[in-house]
């Protein structure tokens, strides 16, 4: 009797909470329905539509999509020299940006995580993240100004009898590296910060000088984080098409081809669009082997 009296006296919110507590499956389904719908319908669904539409064709006069099953688009991807070149160039740019980011990020992260005084470290991390708050377009246009003819780069290099790289592939790589560098620095910083000092002591204790300790202990332990950072730099670079429009001169990457095909030949654009998806999936699979995904 007392228990019913108590139950009657409880507020509906408490009763609901109690019911949910006793029914974990109900709790789980309420919790997951919305995000799962989002993932299945909006995300995976749109990817599926992309993939399916890549097998359609267009009427070459009206540019209207004709829903006839055909592998012509994928055939064209692999046989048309321009497409092949652009795909390889895009992958090359993504790899170059990743490599350049890693080379720059390592010393920066080493400084912020191990050399700088502990009280300055959080501030330095904030400083590294600050550029991410600025607008993408502003940053890329800033690079356009820097790299333009008679711009900052030219002015800096003039005393040495050199000139800036101008717009083109190299400028694209520099600008993309600048854009995605924080995503590389941050995981490396975290890994270096968490590297136990005892391991460095142990290495020295066993007879290793600083260089040896760096090669045999620091680098291998931080490598998974470099790979984690590279997932960002690689995929973000592969998908970019605005930076290359602004500082790339006549350079074309996959994104530009997708963009220029979208009006005229949507199925071709879809076929081109699946390329970075496939490349990134392959890249992720390769990175998973290094253990990078668990240090994201």
């Amino acid at each position: 009797m007392t228990s019913t009296a108590q139950a009657a006296g409880r507020s509906p919110v408490r009763r609901l909470a109690g019911t949910l507590h006793r029914r974990p499956r109900l709790r789980l389904s309420l919790l997951l329905t919305a995000p799962l719908l989002w993932l299945a319908v909006l995300y995976l669904g749109s990817l599926a539509v992309l993939f399916v539409s890549a097998f359609w064709t267009t009427n070459s006069f009206t540019s209207e999509v004709v829903k006839v099953w055909s592998t012509d688009n994928f055939h064209a991807l692999f046989t048309t020299p321009v497409f092949r070149q652009v795909i390889l160039r895009s992958i090359g740019v993504a790899l170059a940006v990743t490599a350049l980011s890693a080379v720059i990020a390592f010393p920066v992260a080493f400084y912020t995580a191990r050399i700088a005084k502990p009280k300055w470290r959080p501030l330095l991390v904030v400083a590294i993240l600050t550029p991410l708050w600025a607008s993408y377009l502003v940053k890329v246009y800033a690079w356009r100004l820097i790299l333009s003819q008679g711009g900052f780069a030219d002015w800096m290099l003039k005393p040495f009898g050199l000139s800036g790289p101008g717009f083109g592939l190299f400028a694209t790589i520099i600008a993309l590296t600048y854009l995605w560098l924080p995503y590389m620095i941050l995981p490396i910083h975290t890994a270096l910060e968490q590297l136990p000092a005892n391991l460095l002591d142990a290495s020295a204790d066993l007879g290793a000088r600083a260089g040896r300790t760096f090669r045999s202990v620091v680098v291998p332990m931080v490598l998974p984080s470099v790979a984690a950072g590279s997932v960002f730099t690689f995929s973000l670079s592969l998908g970019d098409y605005i930076t290359v429009q602004i500082v790339g001169g006549k350079t074309q990457l996959i994104g530009n081809l997708v963009y220029s095909n979208i009006e005229l030949n949507l199925p071709m654009a879809a076929a081109l669009g699946t390329v970075p998806v496939v490349v990134i999936v392959l890249y992720l699979l390769a990175m998973r082997r290094t253990g990078a995904l668990s240090s994201l």
């Binding site: 005892n198 391991l199 002591d201 142990a202 290495s203 020295a204 204790d205 290793a208 000088r209 291998p220």
Partner: peptide
């Protein structure tokens, strides 16, 4: 002298084994 110049080895409290 630096640690690597001494004929002394250490067993650390938390072992400090290289995890990789």
């Amino acid at each position: 002298l630096a640690p690597f110049e001494r004929d002394v080895h250490t067993v650390f409290q938390d072992y400090a084994l290289f995890p990789h």
